[in-house]
Each structure stands twice: as C-alpha cells, then as structure tokens.
Design a protein around this nucleic acid. Structure first.
Lengths: 329, 329
DNA sequence: CTGAAAGCGCTAACAG
DNA sequence: CTGTTAGCGCTTTCAG
C-alpha cells in the first residue's frame, strides 16, 4: 500500500480511504490511486485488514463429510446465501474427527472467520463459550448448546408420512433400517415410524427395526438379516436414501423384486435417488434450502443484536416414485 | 497474549516462545504459562501470527462443484495429505463462476493461504502472475499455465481400454457420449475411443458420438437421440458415470435391457457406480489418490525450492461389473 | 480533502 | 533463560 501511495503521490491513509470507497477522496486523486492499483496488480492484505478491523467478512461451514451428496447440497445453498450477504465462505471437513473439528473451530476463536455453520450435530469443545454462541447456527441436526439455533425439517413428521404412505398402500409388516443412533434424526425418524404404525393399529415388531450408519453398506447388511427372518417385511422405511439403495441391492440379489415383493422408501431425496432402479420413493429434505436459510440466519445474527434467536423449520415433501406399491397378494 | 504473560508473570516474548515449543524456556516457566492458557481458554490469533510470519500454514482447494461426488473424493484425499504435511485445508466452491474463482484466488494473493490446489481446469486470472505459479498445483485437469504441474490419469489410455473392453466382447457398433467439450478430458477420452476403434479396424460413425456436460441429464437426453437412429449402437462408452447412469435410464425406459440389448461403460467409478442396476462397468479414476498426490506435491513445492516441477500421472483401472456383455445375436 | 501516527496480536532479533 | 522492542499491512483518529 505504501508503494501505491508513493506512485500516486499521496499517503497510505488516502489510499486506504480510496480503496474503501470513502467519499472524502477527490475524484482526481482517486483516479491516480486506482490507476496505480491496476498497474501494480496490488490487492489489499486480508489478514492485515482483518487484524485491524477485528472482523473478517468470512464465514465457515463445518461439514462432517463432504463426500455425502446431501451435505454437498446444503453447502451449495449456504454459499448462495453467504454471497448474497457479502460473506466469503470457507469449508472445513471434519471426517467425523473431533480433533479436526476443534482445529477448525479455532478459526472462529482466532478471528479468521466471523461465524460458523455447524453441520452434523457435533459441537466442538472450544465453541462452547457462551459468548461465541451468537456466532453459530446449526443445520440439519441441532447441537448440544442452548444458544445455537438450528435449521432443520420435522424429522418425526416426515418419517410418519413416509410410513403412512406404506400403510396406505396396504402394508402391515413394515421394517425400518435407521442410521447412526447417535444422531438426533435417527430416534426422531424411528418415532415417526412407530407413531404411524400405532395410529394404524399395527403392533410394532422389534425384530423388524435395525440400525447402523447412513451408508449403502448398512442398508445392504441389515436388509440381508431382515430377509432371513421367518416372515420378512413386505415394505421398508429406510433412514436415508443410501440405506435404501443398499437395501434394494440386497433385495435384488435375493432374486426378489422392488416394489412387487418389497416396497422401499428412503429419506433425503439425494440427486441419485431419481435414477436408482426403480426410482426411489423418498422424503425430500430440501438440502439447498436448509443451507440457504441457515446461512441467512447466521448472517442476520452477525449483522445485529436484533437478530432472531430461534431456529427455522423447513417443510419436507413426500416424493412418490416407483419403489413402492401395494403388497403382493 | 499480554494477559497470559501477566498471569504467568513473564513477558509476551516468553509466552510466544513457550507456545511455539521453543527449547529455550524452563520447564517450570512453561508450566505456569500453559496453566494460564488453560485457565483463560486463550488461543493464538492466527491472523496476527500469519501477518507477522508472512505465511499461513493453510492451503486452499478450489472446486468447481462440491456437489460432484467425484470432486468430493478428491478433496478427501487432498485433506489427508495436507493434514500429514501440517497444513490446514480451506475449500472454496466456484459453482463454475469465474468471478467467484477470482474472489477465492485473492486468498492466495493476500497471504491468507500459502498455496492452492486447482480442481476443474480453470485458471483464475489473478493467479497468472509467474511468481504465484510455484504455489499452485492442478488436479484432474491441467490448467492453462505452463508452470503449474498437474496430477491426473492418462485419460486417453483409459478411454482406449474401456472401448477395447467393449470390442473384446464382440461389439462393433459402439457409441460415445462425452462430457463438456471445454474440458481437456473430453477430447482425450474421445481420442482413446477413436483409437481403439481404429486399431480394431472399425469404421468410426460420427452419428454415434454426442456431447453435453458431465451429468445424468446429458446421458439421458443424448441416449434418447441415439436410440432413434435407424441402427442404434449395441454398446456405449460414456464420458462419466453420471452420463452412463442417464443413458441406462433412457435405455430401460425404452424397454431395452442393459447389458443384454446395450452394454454401457462409464468413467470415474464414483461411489454410486457399484449400486446402479446393473452395477456399472467403468474406468476407476482413483479420486482420493489423485487428491492425495496433488496435495503432497503442493506441500513439497511450498516447502522447498528443490521441489518437483513436473506433474504426476496416477494409474487408472478398468472395473468390470455387470453393465457390459457380448452383443445379442 | 489529506497526512501523521497509533495500534490490532504476534514473532524474532538483540540485549542482558 | 528471559525481556525489550521493532515491525508485519492495514484503518482511523486527530490535526492541519
């Protein structure tokens, strides 16, 4: 900046003001400065500026696994909102490792970013200080901190609707493969499933309910066990589309057909759900919108004290495709 | 840090040294300092440190689309290598927008990150300064800058092998749906396809070759046109797994079967390629390894002048699953 | 309208 | 082994 000042024949203070768009700089002076900037290819040093300003105009999104296409969509929505609010977005992958999450969390403590979006329900230890909580928003899963709002769908209602759809088709023997029991979504989805069964007067069968993680492998493995039951289910409500895809694979390998022999419902409606064979009936969780709303909420909170403290519930939607049908006989 | 110094009864210099693990601090003094750090929850200000050190120990990965599962895997590998080299990873999504890419590029100019991994073959304008090129590495696609090494597979050889596989099965009428013509991978894959045809003495049929982008939609649309040909192909070599998935969907909708009526080969071997129906025969592009090697190369370059200037070619692998078979009659 | 100078939090050279 | 101090690049108050 000193160079620019010298070239333009002014002081660094004037350069700084010109670059910040201050109205207190003459048109002619400003032009000389801008010309110098162009000629030298100068860019302001973000770190020095942030150090001085004590704010970064950057936000951070902490993701447990970028490989998850559902998370990726959330990110896309979050970015859109951040750009709209004039924030730069940085993404950090934790790979489920708390140490990595804490490492990332430091970006906030240190002032490198102004706020954080927490994806995946994990609350890094260093972020628990009450003063920091107004710089945080959780998406999809709430985090264990009272002051952090969450943007999510009503998981229980979604699961209930998915199960009702199966019941409406005439199924009575309905299985469930849930994801990680450690998440809050998993018990909520189970609750919705159980609720739908109960309101239809169907006796819950504990042996039809399994858990694992949100993966194709879990779906495949758990489904294999269900098929070995003396009386296998005629329909499955799966805790995620990946689980559903694994379940479908196992069902086909057993030479049974979807949906003729067994109907399958997923959850999330990821990009690939439309091209499975058969295309998957699922609960659409509007990932992009979730990310967008969450980032907007974060930007609002960072902007002013008058910011909303409460979370947002975004609507889900049952998408009926071809993986569900009335039971066989 | 001044606070810590006061509490521990030492100077800031000593605190700084203790935190940096300098051997020139007494055990007892160090303990007092560490206790103070623990008590106050103090963390060093990354920006101030970077400003002083003129380096950030951070690297940036520029991704055109995080929603792409293939890119996501590259990221995972890159992170692994970065963590091993003691770098912090920041990810930036460009959504294919050059303006966003330039915005991100500024992170390097400004010193917020020490180096950048460029995914997707785009070279942001501000990065073209020769001095910066030693801080850059491209992955998957080369960028238009001589000094920037690229880590990739041999796309042409991979495409040749995929096509040979089809020819070996007995196919002679083989179509190709390529991705974005703007990428360097697309013409290379076409070249490999053409080469395999030629060495088998098969006359190339221009009407069997189509282009679009790397998406399910492109695969579906272009395949629909190919099926309307008087004599449709008996096998397809697709420029990506997503394209292959789209093509398979169209084939099935036309009441034809894969692979009995038409064989399909993809490219990339994404996570979902194993669970399509039928599971996809494809060229495995080791995404994770590509990311890992690229980041390692970048770390090496940032570490010393003696760093390698040349790129790396990582081996691909033909994965034969169930979407290919000999032609019908 | 512009300039001088202080200071954001840190590290490292230099002194002791 | 520890302290003092200059300075990284920027913004902004206070003078002029």
């Amino acid at each position: 900046m000193a160079d620019i000042a010298r070239i333009a024949g002014v002081s660094v203070a004037t350069v700084s003001r010109a670059l910040a768009g201050s109205p207190r700089v003459t048109g002619e002076t400003r032009e000389r400065i801008e010309a110098a900037v162009r000629d030298t290819g100068y860019v302001v040093n973000r770190m020095a500026r942030s150090l001085r300003l004590q704010q970064a105009r950057q936000v951070f999104v902490m993701v447990p696994n970028i490989g998850n296409p559902f998370h990726a969509s959330v990110l896309l929505g979050a970015e859109e909102a951040a750009v709209a609010a004039g924030f730069h977005v940085l993404i950090g992958n934790t790979a489920g490792d708390p140490a990595r999450a804490e490492e990332h969390a430091r970006q906030l403590l240190t002032g490198a970013v102004d706020g954080m979006l927490l994806l995946g329900g994990r609350m890094p230890e260093p972020l628990k200080a009450p003063a920091l909580q107004e710089r945080l928003v959780a998406v999809i899963e709430p985090v264990a901190a009272p002051g952090v709002p969450v943007v999510e769908i009503d998981n229980q209602a979604g699961a209930r609707e998915a199960t009702r759809h199966l019941i409406g088709l005439g199924h009575r023997r309905i299985g469930h493969i849930g994801g990680s029991p450690g998440t809050t979504a998993t018990p909520k989805r189970f609750a919705g499933y159980a609720e739908a069964l109960e309101e239809a007067g169907i006796e819950p069968q504990p042996e039809l309910v399994r858990y694992g993680v949100f993966s194709i492998a879990t779906g495949a493995e758990q489904m294999a066990e269900l098929l070995e039951l003396p009386e296998p289910p005629t329909a499955m409500f799966c805790g995620s589309d990946e689980i559903a895809m694994g379940a479908i694979r196992t069902i086909k390998q057993a030479r049974l057909r979807v949906p003729e022999d067994i109907s399958v419902v997923g959850f999330d409606n990821i990009y690939f759900a439309a091209v499975t064979d058969p295309p998957l009936t699922t609960i659409d969780q509007p990932a992009r919108q979730l990310g967008f709303e969450a980032m907007r909420l974060l930007a609002d909170r960072l902007a002013g004290a008058a910011a909303p403290k409460r979370g947002v519930t975004v609507p889900y939607r049952l998408v009926v495709r071809a993986s569900t049908a009335p039971p066989r006989r």
